[in-house]
């Protein structure tokens, strides 16, 4: 078992779904928080990032 190929399936289908859904939710939370959240402090902190990434801003 010393050799592991990168194409081998490491996660079971169920674990893969759990990991994937969790990653999607956390990722969406971070992106929406930095990019779209309607908070003055978040807006000012992320201002240049929001414009650079083309998030709707102002």
């Amino acid at each position: 078992m010393a050799v592991s190929t990168t194409s081998s399936v490491v996660l079971s289908a169920n674990d893969r779904l759990v990991a994937g859904v969790f990653a999607l939710l956390l990722g969406a939370f971070l992106v929406l928080g930095a990019g779209l959240a309607n908070s003055a402090v978040l807006h000012d902190t992320a201002h240049d990032t929001r414009h650079s990434y083309g998030f709707p801003c102002h």
Partner: peptide
């Protein structure tokens, strides 16, 4: 502020991309 926002946004997009790949089953 921009650096922090880029780190958060970068991590967010990385998680979205990884999650999309995991859910769809394409490594």
């Amino acid at each position: 502020g921009t650096l922090l926002a880029n780190l958060v946004t970068g991590t967010g997009f990385a998680l979205l991309l990884a999650g999309f790949s995991l859910v769809s089953g394409n490594p």
